[in-house]
Amino acid sequence: MPVKVIIPTPLRQYAGKQDAIEIQATTVAEALAGLTTQYSDLRKHLFTEDGKLRNFVNVYLNDEDIRYLKKDQTPLHDNDVISIVPSIAGGSHLRCICS
């Protein structure tokens, strides 16, 4: 079934400069596999070498984090929207905050 995958700005350069891509898939795993087959440069930004979704990548189905659904086996319905949301984290140097 057709679903839309929203590509965040830093990854558009690896996805033909598109901000959204339509994919035929029945699960989130299938959609991401389809996407990275079509745009192979995206793979290393989304998956680890052993094929797991990277820690720094959040995937939302409509407004829900797939971690709290059925992870990548979450089933899809017509016109669902999958959003790839990069983890945004940082900070200054380590220091003792024990005191």
């Binding site: 407004d63 984090d65 949301v85 984290a89 900070g91 200054s92 220091r95 003792c96 905050i97």
Partner: peptide, 22 residues
């Protein structure tokens, strides 16, 4: 190292908030 890392020296954006803003 949670004993040495906190909101004093780390930040993380809530991905759901990020998604809404986006």
């Amino acid at each position: 190292e949670p004993a040495r890392e906190s909101e004093r020296n780390r930040f993380l954006i809530d991905p759901l908030e990020q998604l809404k803003v986006e």
